[in-house]
Amino acid sequence: ITIHVNGVTYHFDNPEEAEKFAQKMAKTYQLKMEIHNGEFHME
Rank of each mutant, 00 (worst) to 15 (best):
Q23D: 13
E16Y: 12
K27T: 11
L31N: 07
M33E: 04
T9C: 15
A22S: 02
P15G: 07
E16Q: 09
I3S: 01
I1Y: 09
N6T: 07
H11R: 07
Y29Q: 09
Q30A: 08
F21R: 00
P15K: 09
M42W: 05
K24Y: 15
E16A: 09
D13E: 09
H4C: 11
D13F: 09
F12M: 01
G7I: 15
A18P: 00
K20S: 08
F21D: 00
Q30I: 03
F12K: 00
E43V: 15
I35E: 06
V5M: 07
E34D: 04
Y29A: 07
E19N: 12
E34R: 04
M25C: 11
Y29R: 00
L31Y: 11
H36Q: 07
T28L: 15
M33D: 03
I1P: 03
H41L: 06
F12H: 00
E39C: 14
E16M: 10
E43F: 15
P15E: 08
E16P: 03
H36M: 07
Y10N: 01
N14P: 00
M25Y: 03
T9R: 13
P15S: 09
F21Q: 00
K20L: 10
T28E: 15
K32N: 12
E17I: 08
I35D: 04
V8K: 13
K32S: 13
F40N: 04
H36I: 15
K24R: 09
Y10V: 02
A18S: 01
I1M: 06
T28V: 10
V5D: 01
E39V: 08
N37F: 09
H4W: 11
T9V: 10
E39W: 05
V5Y: 06
T9Y: 05
D13C: 14
D13N: 10
D13R: 06
A22R: 05
M25F: 04
E16H: 10
D13V: 11
A26V: 06
V8Q: 09
T2F: 12
M25H: 03
Q23F: 05
A18G: 08
T28F: 14
E17N: 07
E19K: 10
N6P: 01
E19H: 13
Y10E: 00
M33A: 02
E16F: 10
N6K: 12
L31C: 15
Q23C: 15
K27P: 13
H41S: 05
E39A: 05
F21S: 00
E34W: 13
F12P: 00
K27S: 12
T9S: 11
E16V: 11
Q23M: 10
T2Y: 12
A22W: 04
